[in-house]
C-alpha cells in the first residue's frame, strides 16, 4: 500500500516537474502543423546559430577530451606533489555560476584586462573559451574512476615486456578507458551545446554573427516570436533526447566491461 503511494508520489513529481512541461513545449511548437516550425528553424539567423553552436561544441569537445585523458592520467597514475589543487579545480566548473565564468573571461580579455586586445570577446574565440570552461570536468570525471579500478598491473607487465610508453597507452590503457571516454564525450557535448549564461556574457549576442542556438531561443522569446523560440527549443530538446539515448546505451557497456 505504502509502496504504491510512494510510486505515485514519485512519478507524479516527475510528471508535474518534467514530463508535462517538456511535452507541452513539443505541442506548442507543432500547434500549427509541421511546416511553420520547420520554417522557423530554417530561418537564416536560426541556421547560422545552429552552425555556430555545432562548431563551438566540436572545438570544445575535442580540446576537453584530449585534456581530460591527459589530466586523468596525471591525477591517477603520476600525481606529482601539489596536484591535489588540480583535482579540486577540475570540479569547479560544475559548481560555479556560468555568469561568473563569463564575467571572469570578460575581465581577463576585456578592456584593461591582462590579456586585452586579442579580438577574443564578442567573437567566436570568446564563445569557445566560455564553452570549454563550463564543459571541462566531464571526461576527467568519467575516466579517473575507471583508471583507478583497472590498476597498473597490466601496464606494468607491458612495460616490463619492453613496450614503450605510447605502446602501453594504445594497447593496454586505451582499451580499458575508451567507454568511459565515450561517456564523458557525450556529457561534454550535451553541456557544450546547451551552454547559455557564460556565452551570453562574452558573445555580445549579435544575431547572425555571435548568436548561438541557446541565445537565439532567448532572443526570439524576448522579441515575442514564441513560435521561433519553441521551434528552436524543440531542436535543442531533441538533441537532449539523443544524448539520453546515447547515455543509456553507453552506461551498461561501461559496467559489464
Amino acid at each position: 500500500m505504502s509502496r504504491l503511494a510512494l510510486r505515485f508520489a514519485s512519478l507524479g513529481y516527475l510528471a508535474v516537474l518534467l514530463l508535462a512541461p517538456v511535452g507541452f513545449v513539443f505541442y506548442r511548437a507543432f500547434e500549427h502543423g509541421f511546416w511553420p516550425a520547420w520554417h522557423a528553424v530554417t530561418a537564416p539567423d536560426a541556421l547560422h546559430a545552429l552552425k555556430l553552436t555545432l562548431v563551438v561544441a566540436l572545438i570544445a569537445v575535442v580540446a576537453n577530451t584530449i585534456f581530460g585523458i591527459l589530466c586523468a592520467l596525471a591525477i591517477v597514475r603520476y600525481r606529482p606533489p601539489g596536484f591535489g589543487i588540480v583535482n579540486a579545480l577540475v570540479d569547479l566548473p560544475l559548481a560555479l555560476s556560468p555568469v561568473v565564468v563569463g564575467l571572469s573571461l570578460l575581465l581577463l580579455y576585456g578592456r584593461g584586462g591582462w590579456l586585452a586586445g586579442h579580438n577574443i570577446l564578442f567573437a567566436t574565440p570568446g564563445i569557445v573559451l566560455a564553452t570549454i570552461f563550463v564543459s571541462l570536468p566531464f571526461v576527467v570525471r568519467e575516466v579517473v574512476p575507471v583508471l583507478r579500478e583497472v590498476g597498473i598491473d597490466q601496464e606494468q607487465a607491458a612495460s616490463t615486456l619492453g613496450a614503450s610508453g605510447m605502446q602501453t597507452f594504445l594497447r593496454v590503457t586505451w582499451p580499458a578507458i575508451r567507454w568511459a571516454v565515450a561517456y564523458g564525450v557525450v556529457l561534454t557535448t550535451a553541456r557544450a551545446l546547451g551552454e547559455f549564461g557564460a556565452v551570453r556574457v562574452v558573445s555580445g549576442n549579435i544575431a547572425g554573427r555571435t548568436e548561438t542556438l541557446t541565445l537565439y531561443v532567448q532572443n526570439q522569446y524576448e522579441e515575442f516570436n514564441a513560435a521561433g523560440a519553441y521551434a528552436a527549443s524543440v531542436v535543442l530538446a531533441l538533441i537532449a533526447v539523443a544524448t539520453l539515448l546515447l547515455m543509456s546505451r553507453l552506461r551498461p557497456k561501461e559496467e559489464t566491461r
Binding site: L18, V25, A190, L215, Y230, S233, L236, A240, M247
Partner: peptide, 21 residues
C-alpha cells in the same frame, strides 16, 4: 532514463518550457 533529462536540456529551454505550461 528521463531523470538525466534536466542535465541534457539547455537551461534556457527549461525557462521557455516552464513558462509554456
Amino acid at each position: 532514463a528521463v531523470i538525466d533529462f534536466p542535465f541534457a536540456l539547455p537551461t534556457i529551454v527549461t525557462s521557455v518550457t516552464l513558462l509554456a505550461l
